[in-house]
């Protein structure tokens, strides 16, 4: 028996918005520690790794490990039927081929339930090596989204160059070039408003704007984003979901031929 109760269904709505354009379907691996998801986009260029801790749920019960293959488009349809502050419960029997999703309003005057068919998906899990990244940049997630959106008007690729002085985002294309440079914030009122850089070695890598913009769909989940980079390894873009867990996106760089 698997059962998880979340006090704000809006959190799961935002999570689905953050992954549905990269992944058509995904396996949700449930265990007593929580729910995990790891899946690559069709082109195998990016990977989504999500972890929701059991302790982040109002109630969480998972008697046996369960892998649920979910069509994300179907789940988005179901999630459209609830309000953000509805309480939701997801439930499945062991070896079930359906998942039940229930919504209740806070005053319990409206209850609804939906049953969704589960799928058998070929799981292709990748082993991601522990990496000590050369540069770890923490910045407001809205600022990162803004930069990706603005600069993708000019070119398909975004160069991210991180040095002690700051981080520079650059692109160029038919109409010209664009650069945005952020310095470490010296004073800020709230931690999430600042830009901080931990660096052991300068790094400069190039990434596809299209994927970066898709990762930015996670912006509503977190006020901060963490970018981790090392020379010639995939970029990690991480959004922490308050009390519940995190979503990490990995993106392979573009390299000079």
């Amino acid at each position: 028996m698997f059962e998880a109760r979340l006090l704000k269904s809006g959190q799961l709505k935002k999570i689905l918005e953050a992954i549905k354009e990269l992944l058509k379907e995904a396996t949700f691996d449930c265990s007593d520690s929580g729910i995990q998801l790891q899946a690559m986009d069709d082109a195998h260029v990016s990977l989504v790794s999500m972890c929701l801790k059991s302790t982040g749920f109002d109630k969480f019960r998972c008697d046996r490990n369960l892998s649920m293959g979910i069509n994300l488009e179907s789940m988005v349809k179901i999630m459209k039927c609830c309000s953000n502050d509805d309480i939701m419960t997801i439930k499945a029997q062991d070896n079930a081929d359906t998942l039940t999703i229930m919504f209740e309003t806070k005053n319990q005057e409206k209850m609804s339930d939906y049953e969704m068919k589960l799928m058998n998906l070929d799981q292709e899990h990748l082993g991601i090596p522990e990496t000590n990244y050369s540069c770890i940049i923490k910045m407001p997630s809205s600022e990162f989204a803004r930069i990706c959106r603005d600069l993708s008007q000019f070119g398909d690729s975004l160069v991210i160059a991180c040095t002690k002085e700051g981080v520079k985002f650059s692109t160029s294309g038919d109409i010209g070039s664009a650069n945005v440079k952020l310095s470490q914030t010296s004073t800020f009122d709230k931690e999430e408003e600042g830009v901080t850089i931990e660096m052991t070695q300068a790094v400069c890598l190039t990434f596809a704007c299209r994927y970066l913009n898709l990762f930015c769909k996670a912006t509503p989940l977190s006020t901060q984003v963490i970018l981790s980079m090392s020379g010639d390894v995939p970029l990690v873009v991480e959004y922490q979901i308050e009390e519940l867990g995190c979503i990490r996106y990995y993106l392979a760089p573009k390299i000079e031929e």
Partner: peptide, 14 residues
């Protein structure tokens, strides 16, 4: 000209 790498170049299948 830039080439897009895939994740398979970096991560192994489990």
């Amino acid at each position: 000209n830039m080439t897009q790498r895939t994740l398979m170049s970096y991560f192994n299948k489990k």
